[in-house]
Simulated scan of single mutants.
Amino acid sequence: MAPLVPSSQPWVEKYRPKQVKDVAQQDEVVRVLTNTLETSNCPHMLFYGPPGTGKTTTALAIARQLFGPELYKSRVLELNASDDRGINIVRTKIKDFAAVAVKSCKGQGGYPCPPFKIIILDEADSMTEDAQNALRRTMETYSRGSRFFFLCNYISRIIEPLASRCAKFRFKPLSEDIMITRVLHICQEEGLDLEPEALSTLSSISQGDLRRAITYLQSAARLFGSSITSKDLISVSGVIPQEVVDSFFAACRSGNFDLANKEVNNVIAEGYPVSQMFSQLFDIVVEADDISDEQIARICKKLGEADKRLVDGSDEYLQLLDVASSTMRAICNMQEDFS
């Protein structure tokens, strides 16, 4: 397979840390794993936390530092979001890989090369419960020659028998300072001119997800050239313009249903994602200082219910209209009660 042309290589991969010690901000995790690498005594591991905080990077770095480039392909099995996660993949692909024993190749190429394989299951919280139960037995049977790395956003979706067999590592959202430092480094390497306001915007819209920030940056660079503005980043991110969200909330506060319905129709007609509207509307509501805590609680409860219905496949127009109606009722009825 021909190597990627540098200009077409995703920056997420290009600037991915190659060693555990280079992973940003996860100091406790890095310290423990560095000690693990020195002894080559690796347990099953469970990495959990928000997206874009370094879980996959850390798992891949451990595998590379243990086996090096020559043994990596034969010793590491990585299953990501595009792979089937049902019970059949556990019974076939994972079991077959784990069943083949390997010997120690200490010192090969300067790498520890311990006598086990590593199976990396990215987004493990998307596996079915049956698949996780089947995996528990596989872990027990082949524990001598295999180590499992589970990567997930929600640890609550991993069944307890699996979680209890792993050393757990929590990955924290990246701070704005760390995000800015990494982004500025990439801008310098790629010759980009990023406006100060654009830097702040990028940090805001990526919400602590460094992978997302780098992807937005590369997309903007490809579309708009080396000089990138705040508007450019918003246009490639899918974030709804703030004036649209403000206008929608103002219509809800007015108590005028026809005006609110007009704003709903405008959002749908423009093709803005309603789930994104809920997310940005939530930020406005919780920061509003002229409505009561009870009103905020009622609106947030409705946003959560509507967002769940969207995930289940409900109609976007109806859910946004339901949120608009409920917001109007929460604000206007409470105001009438106090008058």
Results as ranks from 00 to 15, higher is better:
residue 232 D to L: 01
residue 31 R to G: 14
residue 22 D to L: 11
residue 131 A to G: 12
residue 212 R to W: 11
residue 172 K to Q: 12
residue 219 S to H: 12
residue 208 G to C: 10
residue 71 L to N: 03
residue 316 E to N: 10
residue 7 S to M: 06
residue 96 D to W: 01
residue 171 F to H: 05
residue 133 N to P: 05
residue 242 Q to R: 06
residue 149 F to W: 05
residue 14 K to S: 12
residue 268 I to C: 02
residue 71 L to E: 09
residue 8 S to Y: 06
residue 56 T to I: 09
residue 67 F to W: 07
residue 294 E to Y: 07
residue 161 P to V: 09
residue 263 E to L: 06
residue 188 Q to A: 14
residue 77 L to I: 01
residue 124 A to E: 06
residue 238 G to V: 02
residue 247 S to N: 13
residue 69 P to K: 03
residue 337 D to Y: 11
residue 39 T to F: 12
residue 280 Q to K: 08
residue 321 L to D: 02
residue 59 A to K: 07
residue 203 S to G: 08
residue 49 G to N: 12
residue 18 K to D: 04
residue 94 I to K: 03
residue 302 K to D: 02
residue 91 R to E: 09
residue 133 N to M: 13
residue 23 V to H: 05
residue 19 Q to F: 07
residue 198 A to R: 00
residue 45 M to T: 11
residue 15 Y to E: 13
residue 296 I to R: 12
residue 224 F to K: 10
residue 210 L to F: 03
residue 190 E to T: 13
residue 332 C to V: 14
residue 109 G to W: 06
residue 149 F to D: 03
residue 212 R to G: 14
residue 262 K to H: 14
residue 46 L to S: 08
residue 87 I to H: 13
residue 19 Q to G: 12
residue 170 R to Y: 04
residue 302 K to W: 01
residue 24 A to V: 13
residue 178 I to P: 00
residue 198 A to P: 01
residue 319 Q to R: 01
residue 153 N to Q: 08
residue 137 R to D: 09
residue 268 I to Y: 02
residue 320 L to S: 02
residue 135 L to T: 15
residue 158 I to T: 14
residue 258 D to C: 03
residue 137 R to K: 12
residue 205 I to M: 05
residue 101 A to C: 06
residue 144 R to T: 10
residue 240 I to V: 10
residue 231 K to W: 01
residue 23 V to G: 07
residue 100 V to S: 11
residue 334 M to K: 12
residue 197 E to V: 03
residue 264 V to A: 00
residue 245 V to P: 02
residue 223 L to E: 15
residue 72 Y to N: 08
residue 213 A to Q: 08
residue 120 I to F: 10
residue 160 E to Y: 13
residue 321 L to P: 00
residue 145 G to M: 12
residue 330 A to C: 07
residue 263 E to C: 05
residue 127 M to C: 11
residue 162 L to K: 09
residue 170 R to V: 03
residue 118 I to E: 04
residue 237 S to K: 06
residue 179 M to E: 11
residue 214 I to M: 09
residue 64 R to E: 08
residue 12 V to L: 13
residue 239 V to E: 01
residue 178 I to K: 07
residue 274 V to R: 03
residue 241 P to D: 04
residue 251 A to F: 04
residue 258 D to N: 07
residue 136 R to V: 06
residue 160 E to L: 15
residue 29 V to G: 00
residue 52 G to A: 14
residue 267 V to E: 00
residue 168 K to L: 10
residue 94 I to D: 00
residue 46 L to N: 06
residue 25 Q to D: 15
residue 246 D to L: 15
residue 179 M to K: 08
residue 290 D to T: 01
residue 261 N to A: 08
residue 27 D to N: 15
residue 241 P to Q: 03
residue 91 R to D: 05
residue 99 A to G: 05
residue 53 T to E: 12
residue 327 T to N: 02
residue 331 I to Q: 02
residue 93 K to P: 03
residue 201 T to Y: 00
residue 327 T to F: 01
residue 118 I to G: 02
residue 89 I to Y: 11
residue 320 L to N: 00
residue 61 A to E: 13
